[in-house]
Amino acid sequence: MSTGENSHHMATAERGTRKRRVGKASKNKKSKTLPPSSARFKVTMKNQKLFQKRARDYNSDEDEEEDEEKKQPEVTIREKIFSDANMGPNYDEIEEDEDEDDEEEGSDNEEEIQSGITKFASDGGCNAFKIAFKAIMKKTKEDDTLDPILSGRKPLIAKQLAEEEAEFKAKSQARKAKHLVAEKGHVKPGSYLDSREKILIGVATKGVVKLFNAVNKAQHAQKGLNPSRSKDAKVLKKRRKEAFFTELGKTSKTDTKVQKSSTSNEDDAPAWAPLRDNYMLANPKLKDWDKKQDTSEGDNFAAMSGDESYED
C-alpha cells in the first residue's frame, strides 16, 4: 500500500469535510486580511463559481471522466476501477481543481488542505473504514446487467427472473388458448370473390330482380289511378288481386322466393299449426293440441304439398 493510494482514498473519503474547509478558507482569509469590499466581493464571486463548478462536476460525472482520462493517461488499475465505480477520481479531480483555484487565491490555503489530509491519514481512527473500503475494492466487478452491488443476491434474482419469465410464458399460452376458443369459427374473407359467393350473389340478384319486376308491374298498372277515389280504388283492388295471382303462378317454377305482399295471408298460411304466424296466439288453450295433430297429420301433409307449389 503506497501513500499516494492512501491519500487518494482519503481524499475521496473526505467529501463531507471538503466543503467546510473551503468555507473555512474564505473565512480565514476574511478574518486575516480584511480586504476592501470589492475584494471581498470578488472572493465571494469566486467561491460562487467554485460551488457552481463543483455542482456541475457532480452532476455530470461521465463527461468529466472522459476529461480526466484525457488529462491523466497513466492511471493505475485501481484508479480505473475507481473510474468505473464513478467514485474516487471525480472527487480527486475536484480536489485538484479546487487546489488550483486556491493556489490562485493564495498559498496559505494549499498548506491548510495538505495539513488536513495528513491529519486525517495519520489519525489512524479511520483504519476500520480503510479496511472496509479495501475489501470492497478487492471485489471484482463482473460484466453483467445485474446490479454489481447486489451481486451477492445475483442467483436469487436470476431465479426470480426465470420464474417470472416462465409465468409470463404460461400466461401468454393460456391467453392464446382462450383467444383461440373465442375466435373459433371467425373467418376473415379473402379479397377475391370465390365461386360460391358469386353463386350466392347470383341467387340474391335473381330474387331482387323478380321482386322489382313484380313491383314495377303492379305499380305500372295503377299509374293514373288515384287510390283515394272509391271508384278507382275498387278497380285497383281487383287488378292487384289478379296481378298477384299471376305473379304467384310464375314464381312457382323457380326455387327462389321473395317475400311478397301479405294481401293473401289466409291463402298463404300453412296448414300445419306451428308454421302459422299466429301460432299459439289465436288459441291459448292447447290442451288437446297433440290430439288434433295426430288425427289430421296425414291431411296436413297433403295440404302442405299443395301450399308448397303455391308459395314457392
Binding site: G207, L211, E247, T256, Q259, S262, L275
Partner: peptide, 27 residues
C-alpha cells in the same frame, strides 16, 4: 333460397325468417 323441401323444420325456418322483417306490399 333452397328451403322449398318437404321438411317441416325448414318450412318453419322459412316462415320465421319471412316474418322477422316487415312484409312488403308490392303495390
Amino acid at each position: 333460397s333452397g328451403f322449398g323441401s318437404q321438411e317441416l323444420h325448414l318450412k318453419l325456418a322459412t316462415i320465421m325468417f319471412q316474418n322477422i322483417f316487415p312484409a312488403i306490399d308490392i303495390n
